[in-house]
């Protein structure tokens, strides 16, 4: 089976600081949930920014399907089938919930299909349905995260990139977000989950990569890593 998504020997510099030092990452199968975990400053967000075209790497390749993502303009990346749930949610706060979802489907043109997808999302998230005509900024943090995920789903992505969806959420809401991620995976969406919350990420992922100061230091099957002594000590705190 051919590779869906791959990062090959990626080096990113901030000025003279070598932030990402040659990482390799692969998502081989469709429907896989791969997690990239690491502490603060490990380089997770730097890699994400590079994938979305906000940063240029000094060296390396990012491949998605038949595309070389480094050659695709940021605004055209979504059309290749790769959607993102950015760090810090970045919803459009003064637009309504419904308009936020419409923006997610910005690259799609069949109105009836968009409407149907939106109704599906409102069925899945009754809280969003209740608030569909409110400015999205009036939602609670958890609801905003759900909206950010829902907005990304509106483009019907082949691959969904999620950058720290648990950030700033209460434990109960984190559980809810991870349930949702699992649900999307079971519906066939391929997901790359970037997380600081290693325990949660490993508990739902198929495979995982551990990032430490710009290098991949471990990789493997997530459920095995969850029980690996070294990883337990370093990342899970006992």
């Amino acid at each position: 089976m051919s590779t869906l998504f791959a990062i090959r020997d990626l080096h990113i510099f901030y000025g003279s600081i070598h932030a990402v030092k040659g990482i390799n990452l692969e998502i081989k199968e469709e429907g896989e949930l791969v997690s990239l975990i690491g502490a603060n400053g490990a380089g997770k967000t730097t890699i994400m920014h590079c994938i979305s075209g906000l940063l240029r790497p000094r060296q390396g390749q990012i491949l998605f399907k038949e595309y070389d993502l480094l050659k695709v303009k940021p605004e055209n990346i979504l059309e290749t089938g790769l959607a993102q749930v950015p760090e810090g949610r970045r919803i459009f706060t003064r637009l309504t919930v419904e308009d936020n979802l419409e923006m997610g489907a910005y690259t799609r043109h069949k109105k009836s299909e968009i409407k149907a997808d939106m109704e599906k999302i409102f069925q899945r998230f009754p809280r969003l349905a209740e608030r569909r005509r409110q400015p999205a900024g009036t939602l609670s943090g958890g609801e905003q995260q759900m909206l950010a995920i829902a907005r990304a789903m509106m483009s019907r992505p082949k691959l969904l990139l999620m950058d720290e969806p648990s950030m700033g959420l209460a434990p109960l809401l984190v559980r809810e977000v991870f349930d949702l991620i699992q649900e999307m995976r079971s519906e066939g969406t391929t997901i790359l989950l970037v997380e600081q919350n290693a325990r949660m990420a490993l508990s739902i992922a198929d495979r995982a990569y551990v990032l430490e100061t710009g290098r991949i230091v471990h990789e493997g099957v997530a459920s095995e890593m969850l029980h690996d002594e070294r990883i337990r000590e370093a990342y899970l705190g006992s």
């Binding site: 979305s52 906000l54 940021p74 605004e75 055209n76 990346i77 979504l78 059309e79 959607a83 993102q84 950015p86 970045r90 919803i91 459009f92 706060t93 003064r94 637009l95 308009d99 419409e102 923006m103 997610g104 910005y106 690259t107 907005r151 483009s155």
Partner: peptide, 24 residues
């Protein structure tokens, strides 16, 4: 219109707008 929504989304968050496929 759809274009107007794109313009408003740039005001709200240009990075998210770009990620949504808007030619900012």
């Amino acid at each position: 219109s759809r274009h107007g929504r794109a313009i408003l989304s740039i005001r709200e968050d240009d990075i998210a707008a770009e990620a949504s496929g808007v030619a900012v």
